[in-house]
């Protein structure tokens, strides 16, 4: 049997960090910036954020991996913990641990990079866009397709405007329901595939959004000829510990907290077809 010798530090131990800013992104979503000297992360990873006396939630890092010193998180209010986190003000403290999970793959040299985001799924993909822009020469074409429920739900609008004004990245934005001030596209993100440039057989696709959206996107990409092993999805389950102890985030054999959250579609396809897995 295993022998235990060295003393052990609590693996769910927290660090106290201070909030630098908290800005509203949309009616139910806020972006908070933390002063986090010494913490680095890779695009696609998440942190466990702790609101004092309330609890922890797994939150993707939505900032730039090449901007050390701060951690950026974009949080939607869906329960008591995220309510408390979204209510933090500059100077407030919260507990953090991480980063956890694997990251978005870089893809092959010379590939097209296709990033498909739905709703809050833009948050873990924003660092991937920054990463792609920092390594732009790695790819032939880089595109972002981003869908939201309504124009008001679109996150990171300043970034979108900036990315639309450069030729380094193709950006296609669509909404499910337009409002009177919306002049853009309406419909599913899959409708936008024809509006961006990618060669299916040489494409790395990064996809994050509601699970039903990812299922449709991954299947459509496969039908277009993108190899299932080149389509990457970031899945969500209710991670409680982030270190493979609590069992909550199991998706088949994978603990999404440490084996994921980013997994390739060839590994996921059959599981995504099973109800209530």
């Amino acid at each position: 049997m295993t022998t235990v010798s060295a003393p052990v530090v609590e693996p769910m131990g927290l660090h106290s960090l201070k909030v630098v800013s908290n800005a509203s992104e949309s009616p139910d979503t806020s972006t908070i910036v933390l002063d986090s000297p010494g913490i680095t992360f890779h695009a696609g990873q998440f942190m466990m954020l702790y609101a004092f006396g309330v609890g922890e939630a797994p939150i993707s890092v939505s900032g730039n991996p090449h901007s050390p010193g701060t951690l950026v998180h974009t949080i939607r209010r869906v329960g008591p913990v995220t309510d408390a986190l979204c209510g933090l003000r500059p100077g407030d403290s919260l507990g953090v641990r991480g980063p956890y999970g694997d990251s978005w793959p870089a893809g092959e040299q010379g590939d097209d990079l296709l990033i498909v985001a739905g709703g809050l799924g833009m948050a873990p993909l924003r660092p991937a866009v920054f990463e792609a822009m920092a390594n732009r020469s790695r790819y032939r074409n880089v595109s972002l397709i981003y869908g939201a429920r309504t124009p008001a739900d679109l996150l990171f609008k300043d970034d979108l405007v900036g990315w639309m004004s450069t030729s380094s990245i193709d950006v296609a934005v669509t909404v499910d329901r337009a409002t009177s001030d919306w002049w853009g596209h309406v419909g599913l993100v899959t409708n936008e595939f024809s509006r961006v440039d990618f060669r299916p057989e040489s494409t790395t696709a990064l996809v994050c959004g509601p699970e039903v959206m990812m299922r449709v996107v991954a299947r459509s990409l496969r039908d277009l000829g993108v190899p299932a092993s080149s389509t990457w999805l970031s899945l969500e389950r209710n991670m409680k510990c982030a270190i493979g102890f609590c069992g909550h985030c199991q998706f088949g054999s994978d603990f999404l907290c440490k084996d994921g959250p980013v997994l390739s579609y060839d590994r996921l396809a059959w599981r995504l077809g099973v109800d209530e897995l």
Partner: peptide, 16 residues
């Protein structure tokens, strides 16, 4: 009990 956490001078004091 994994952690004991209290507030002190605006920071969280975290004890194991």
């Amino acid at each position: 009990e994994l952690l004991h956490i209290r507030r002190s001078n605006g920071d969280l004091v975290i004890e194991e």
